[in-house]
Design a protein around this nucleic acid. Sequence first.
RNA 1: GCGGCCAUGGCGGAAUUGGUAGACGCGCUAGCUUGAGGUGCUAGUACUGCAAGGUGUGGAGGUUCGAGUCCUCUUGGCCGCACCA
Length: 836
Amino acid sequence: MIPERYNAKEAEPKWQKAWSDGEIFRTRNDDPRPKYYVLEMFPYPSGRIHMGHVRNYAMGDVVARFMRAKGFNVLHPMGWDAFGLPAENAARDRGVHPGAWTYANIDAMRGQLQSMGLSLDWSREIATCDPAYYKHQQRLFLDFLKAGLVDRRTARVNWDPVDQTVLANEQVIDGRGWRSGAPVEQRELTQWFLKITDYAQDLLDALDRLERWPEKVRLMQKNWIGRSEGLLVRFALDPAAAPAGESELDIYTTRPDTLFGARFMAVAPDHPLARAAAARDPALAAFIEECRRTGTAAEAIETAEKLGYDTGIRALHPFDPDWTLPVYVANFILMDYGTGAIFGCPAHDQRDLDFVNKYGLGNTPVVCPPGADPATFAITDTAYDGDGRLINSRFLDGMSVDDAKEEVARRLERETRGGRPVAERRVNFRLRDWGISRQRYWGCPIPVIHCEDCGVVPVPPEQLPVVLPEDVSFDGPGNPLDRHPTWTHVDCPRCARPARRETDTMDTFVDSSWYFARFTDPWDAAAPTDRRAVDRWLPVDQYIGGIEHAILHLLYSRFFTRAMNATGHSGIADGEPFAGLFTQGMVVHETYRAADGAWLMPGEVRIDQEGSERRAYRLDTGAPVEIGSIEKMSKSKKNTVDPDDIIGSYGADTARWFMLSDSPPERDVIWTEEGVQGAGRFVQRVWRLVGEVAAIEAAAPSAPDHPVRRAAHKTLAAVEEAIEALRFNVAVARIYELANAVQSELQAARLDNAEAANAAALRQATELLVHLIAPMMPHLAEECWGALGREGLVAQAAWPAVERSLLVENAITLPVQVNGKKRADVTVARDADQAA
RNA sequence: GCGGCCAUGGCGGAAUUGGUAGACGCGCUAGCUUGAGGUGCUAGUACUGCAAGGUGUGGAGGUUCGAGUCCUCUUGGCCGCACCA
């Protein structure tokens, strides 16, 4: 006897236990079936999962369960991106050790994920803060060091004054720290770098081959790598005014064609020539100091005037030694792009034009736009950067921009000064090396030792891991490791004399740059990876996560797999970690605001539908509440919904189903109470249908081409296609259609007094329906599977095969159009040969 | 400023990729049923019109027998980068 209502609260833990007891999601590396690796970005253990996680993991689980049913050996693991600053903040604010805080959070979140019924192989669980994990990361670091992929150098770095740490360029957003939001300062520090620029060209080229990546992400990475082709030109300096030892100024330009439009030279405030000149000119030194203070914040840059200081140094034009150009130090020249120096051509570069207009240096147009009169063409406030014919440029006159570029390059390449060519063609990248030093405690220690005599000495591999000390205090500012009384003191592995441990830890993005590789054999204690496992499993076939990692994590990981290939830790084809990438949209929700302006949580308001009007009232006082805009769920706007509450009241299947329905997965999904209720109604409707179908006696075999069988197989084909394309909302809609078809047929059958052929067809269609919902609502599917009298677990059942013959209609209805308007339908019988 | 994406009913969206626009869900309307745990069922729901019909995928053109889909221009919204020489 089947109870009337489906009880998710009882059913879900029951099936979760059945899956777990049967170890049916445990993946073996020696399984001979074709592999499929599906991975969702692992979470930071903040303490609670949020709806974004539910959406992300629901999608991944559909793919995992579907591919498993399709006969693949599916790897679907989960872990924790467990190092990071919030743990230290918790330690400081609440006096709990970062490790204890982190592991408590992991335990809580693991329980939440398990309540979602995800088909994860928990035996492969890893946490990046576990010495058993970061030990291997330290090993990778040492091997990268040996291979020349690590650099230690003094560099001007982004310093976050609030978090008291260095940030990578990628972690500075609009001139502010990505976590603290504080304006970033520039500081000179000795830092560890991973030489991602070694792979700039390859990282760029391979993007074109990542066909299953969103175009948007590929483009963002392309722009971030920022390749340009140009000319490095060595300008001679007028010896009369040059500082001692300085005879040349190297500039990089992508517009050598405009060389005859040059009006000035400019160098960055940090440029060696600027420093040399400042040494003999206190006013210049003061100007440079002023530039430094302006900072790099977006607002500062936008409002900043172009400022320059004439050093008195003069550069000689490469085509005319009698033509001298003043050398300025200018605040808008970046030291870390090109050579940190430019030649200014005001007529064809807006920044240069702004600059000359301020300092009265004038301009000479050298490119005449098509249609303009070369005799009268003049530039005043707007630089012209388009195509055209060269003018005022001696031997270049009349040439196109491209021809002129080529001509200048050809001539200057041939000329030499001091045994070197005056110019060289250069490919330049915007991408900088990845600074990984962080002055924090809760991160992976960089495994090197500083010895006064031997310099920087790597920790011998057999001494790994360098484990974080437990007894640290978070009272003072800066890095607690620096203040540790004993941990820093260590003997030099080379000369055995007292030495000092490196106290910088690695950027947490290092941790997440190879975890997907570790999942392939997380038990290996001897090495970061087992070559057979990692080469077999990687690349990840389908990676799913948020667009916010379009550059940071996804670029670093692409670098890491290349570096691992180079150091023998992997042999991944093309060096690419993720063959397929999907970036899912956010979960958004209405906001509610009380009369006093305070935000209210969804649980604090009651929504009334008054005709077509929706009105909100406070639950406690009944006072009217303003319904605000729909925004990303956030604590500050209080428009969050707790997954625990939803799973507790509706069940995980309802939450999963709603997350997958409604919006296309790459777009934002609006979480609504009505929508969840709709999903909950469907759960009950499926259960009722299954119950009624199961109760009907199927006396005779089904007519093979019964309409409901036809509908079921059409749906099967459509859902399969939709899941493969990750179009879960379409798959959901097709399943609704099938449920409607089954329900109609059931009613028809009841009216016919349960005609036998219908009953068998109905049963088959209903079984297909259960197969179809299984990847999305796995618990309900198991319950229905049993109710239909099927043995075993639907989670282990093979995906049904589409009967192709049922997809072809015997009769075709054709619209008859006249002048593009439908005027009639004509139904014709399909040719029997074609129908087969 | 540069680059990209998007635009379809009251809402989220679908459209076999150039072939009946609005599937499916939400909401709403009417009726029946149920009556204490998120009911169920039936019918309707792009706009306009009593109807036949007409109009309709942000706007304007174009290609085509046929355009939500392709091309050109344009408007609005969202996102990324941004003194990159």
